[in-house]
């Protein structure tokens, strides 16, 4: 995973996301994914599986995004 410093002194990494991200970007994307998954889960999946499953899935995805995004 490549790491580069921008002109403003922020560290950005070249992960699997299609753009360079700093730490704030990756946490933000993690939160956006968390909310999105919960809303979609409430709409489509809740009769089959409880909402806690959505929390676990979104936390795992959030962790991957923050570490490798």
């Amino acid at each position: 995973m490549q790491e580069q410093e921008t002109s403003k002194g922020k560290k950005e990494i070249n992960g699997f996301l299609p753009f360079y991200t700093n730490a704030f970007d990756r946490v933000f994307i993690g939160v956006v994914i968390l909310i999105g998954i919960h809303l979609l889960w409430l709409r489509f999946m809740e009769p089959a599986l409880p909402i806690e499953a959505a929390t676990v899935i979104s936390l795992v995805i959030g962790y991957i995004v923050v570490r490798r995004g």
Binding site: H38, L39, L42, R43, E46
Partner: peptide
């Protein structure tokens, strides 16, 4: 989450 449950439907 009841408000959000109501909202998505």
């Amino acid at each position: 989450l009841d408000n959000f449950r109501r909202l998505v439907f």
